[in-house]
Amino acid sequence: MSQQQQQQSNTSRNVFVITNGDSLVGYALAYRCLEAMEKHEVEPEISGHKIRLLCRSRSGFGLSRLEKMGAEIMEVNYKDEDKMRDCLKDVMCVMMIPEFSFDREKEAECLIKAAKHQHVEHISMLSWIGVDRIHKSDNSQQGSQFRNLEQICHIEKMVKEEFSGEKHCIVRFPMVYQLFYYLAPQLEGENRLCLPVEKNKKFTSLDLNDVVEGVHRLAKKQRERLAGRQIEFQFKKQVYEFTCSKALSGEEMARQIGEGLGRHDMKFQHISGNDLKKQLEHIKNDDRFKERPDQRGDFKKGRDGFWAFPINKYIHECKIDTMMEWWQLANKGELDMHSDELRHILDREPHSLKKYFEENRDQFKRFK
């Protein structure tokens, strides 16, 4: 297809799809894109485009707020390829966020096949930092130990093969600061940071605000490229690794969180994975996590809005299992890593843990 034909094809495709809208990252990313359209931050040629948000269920996730901003919400069965083809009609680009599902590989395969059938121009995928490191150990039980991360690895491979060259982009990112809300009752009530990672093991983490802002900027540049414009080198990669400026140990994290909250005696405690699972199961029944706060927030300042709060409906077995595998990687020393890619994309340093907690201190104090 010539560049002129491609531009004509793109003109007839006016839908951008985001999957997994009933997840923390999917919801936040959809909000950021809709906000950009509301504030006319987008290029004139896509001002008439729309966001189609796919989800398993819209009940209890606050998706009506996004609908009022212009999102088209579609409940889907990701394993039904025929229905997925309908979902991807007139779609230019897909942002795929793998499901927290034990069938995520099959679901991703159906989505990718449907995208190929509908001649989608580009697929972006959000992945996890460290998924390319799960084979470094000589442990013979590697496959069973990292079942969920193995699946995400396989999905990355499918994306690269089916949408090769400039037709795909993969963004890997770590655990986000916003998951500390699930630990807020202990942070505020007991002055302890409890994680299933050894105190001397360093790992990277990030503000969801920075992750979403970075992905939004990449998507904007991708649209410019599809429109035939020249873009800078740092926006032409196929795989990005988003990290903070410096990996931290649990003790260093506790100190930064304490300083951010105005406490200087915050302690770190190494707990077992089962202990953390019990805490998360308890949060599932905590009414304070049932509804989103009303704050509007600010992505660029790192101030959380309603879209960044991890409600308890996000907690389910597969998500917990995936998180536990990530902590195992941290304990193997595989998440002590650093990349400048996000800093280059944002044109500033990502928010530090201390800065994030300073900016959101009042949000956390609600859990005293």
Rank of each mutant, 00 (worst) to 15 (best):
K278P: 02
T204M: 02
G333M: 04
Q234F: 09
I320M: 13
A219Y: 14
E41N: 13
F173M: 14
K157F: 12
W128V: 07
E349Q: 12
I311M: 08
R65T: 14
A36C: 01
E45I: 10
V42N: 15
T19Q: 11
Q145N: 12
L335G: 01
F364S: 03
N20I: 00
V25S: 07
G60V: 03
A247F: 08
S245K: 11
S127R: 07
N77E: 14
L126E: 07
E325F: 03
F146C: 10
C153D: 09
S205V: 04
K267C: 04
I231W: 07
S12H: 08
E188Y: 04
E162W: 04
E251L: 01
E35A: 05
I345E: 02
G21R: 02
P44V: 04
L187A: 01
L329V: 11
K202T: 09
K313V: 01
C87Y: 02
S245W: 04
R263M: 10
R13G: 03
I123M: 04
K79T: 15
N20W: 01
C244N: 13
S140N: 02
R263I: 00
V91W: 14
I283L: 13
R56K: 12
C318I: 12
P44H: 05
F242L: 09
I320K: 04
Q222G: 08
I311P: 05
R303N: 03
R192I: 01
E325V: 03
I46H: 01
K89N: 14
E349V: 00
F242S: 09
K237F: 08
Y240W: 07
E105Y: 10
G165P: 07
C55N: 08
L111H: 01
C55S: 08
K106T: 12
L335H: 00
I257M: 01
F306C: 11
V131G: 07
V159H: 10
Q230Y: 12
K300E: 13
T322W: 11
I315W: 10
Q186P: 00
Q230F: 14
W327S: 04
I97T: 03
I134T: 10
Q186T: 05
P196Q: 11
G228S: 09
M337Y: 01
S137V: 07
K68V: 12
N191F: 03
E190H: 05
K157Q: 13
F242W: 07
K278H: 05
G60H: 02
R172C: 15
S352F: 10
I155H: 11
L346E: 14
L335V: 02
Y27I: 11
M324T: 08
L126K: 01
R225M: 15
R361W: 05
H264R: 05
L183K: 02
V197N: 03
V94I: 11
M266S: 06
H119K: 14
Q145A: 13
E38T: 08
V94P: 00
Q295C: 03
